[in-house]
């Protein structure tokens, strides 16, 4: 591992965190930020930093790292640079779960993430079953197509549910579908961080398997890798990782798509390095995007999912051009 990659990445994450704490509806000077972090200084600023901004940034770090690692693992495993967790039914399933909870009147802040998580897991299981029924095994191309179709089906379900729901319910569900770190509280953040750490830990452990899978099914089999079992396992872990982030912060697209491309542009070819670099870059990206969401049209707050899409789409188009 070259320090030339890791030191700048760590510095960027550190800067993103400090900017994220300092910026917002009430901007703060750097010295005030440091004092508030140490719990000393103006009590209002201490409260803002420790109870509002820190949990929000911690959630942003966890969500960004989770989405980016999930995307990096899926792109390499499915041998498709355009694969990402949201393309594979995870987001659709999570949104359908959340909307179902909202329209059934279960929209307490504790239940919504659970419903989203359950929806995402259901969608992932359906995708795997569809792929197995169609192709007889976890064929990467079929997995991708099954994910797209299951996602589209979930969107249809959401539209049906929202068309018949009362207006204030619709607004709450829509806000959640646009993604936000605004509801971050330490208790919820801890759970998301735990799931994300678990997911990243598993995928990093399996990094050598992912390296081998990237060669193609026959080559991986000739190296002694049980292709179908390992593909399913990685797909499932990566999807759960994305589902945990969706449960924590709603739908935040494009992070899982563009961050792995950044890792490759940095010259990281080894999957373990690429996953860890993606975790850092994704964490920084989401914290900075959230800072933009909070400050661009102050005092109004933009939906985070819209900001990441505004950054992600031009980047995506640029990559698409490079691929030709």
């Amino acid at each position: 591992m070259t320090l030339r990659v890791w030191i700048p990445l760590l510095v960027v994450v550190g800067i993103a965190v400090l900017l994220g704490i300092a910026g917002g509806a009430v901007p703060m000077a750097p010295t005030d930020v440091l004092r508030a972090l140490l719990g000393d200084g103006d009590p209002t600023q201490v409260a803002i930093v420790q109870n509002l901004r820190l949990p929000r940034i911690a959630l942003g770090l966890a969500v960004g790292a989770g989405l980016a690692v999930s995307g990096a693992a899926l792109q390499t495993t499915l041998r498709n640079p355009l694969a990402e967790p949201y393309l594979l039914g995870v987001s659709g399933g999570a949104a359908a779960g959340a909307v179902a909870a909202v329209t059934l009147g279960l929209a307490s802040s504790a239940l919504l993430p659970l419903a989203a998580f359950a929806g995402a897991v259901t969608a992932v299981v359906v995708v795997l079953l569809v792929a197995r029924a169609v192709a007889g095994h976890a064929d990467p191309r079929v997995l991708l197509m099954a994910g797209v179709v299951v996602g589209a089906f979930c969107t249809a379900l959401i539209m049906v549910a929202l068309a018949t729901a009362p207006e204030n319910t619709v607004r709450g569900a829509l806000w959640w579908m646009m993604g936000s770190l605004g509801d971050a509280q330490w208790r919820g953040v801890r759970w998301v961080a735990l799931y994300v750490a678990l997911g990243i830990g598993l995928l990093v452990t399996w990094a050598r398997d992912i390296d081998v899978l990237a060669l193609g099914e026959d080559a991986a089999a000739s190296l002694g890798l049980p292709v179908e079992r390992v593909t399913r396992r990685i797909y499932f872990a990566a999807s759960l990782l994305a589902a945990a982030t969706v449960a924590g912060a709603g739908l935040i697209g494009f992070v899982g798509l563009i961050v792995p491309a950044i890792g490759r542009a940095l010259g990281l070819r080894n999957t373990r390095e690429a996953l860890l670099a993606s975790a850092l870059a994704g964490a920084a990206l989401v914290v900075l995007a959230d800072l933009l969401a909070r400050t661009l049209l102050r005092p109004a707050e933009l939906p985070l999912g819209a900001v990441t899409a505004l950054i992600g789409v031009p980047f995506f188009l640029w990559r698409l051009r490079r691929m030709r």
Partner: peptide, 13 residues
């Protein structure tokens, strides 16, 4: 050791 018929790494190494 098997050298299979087709193999195109999507991500060059």
């Amino acid at each position: 050791a098997v050298v299979p018929q087709r193999e195109e790494p999507v991500f060059p190494l």
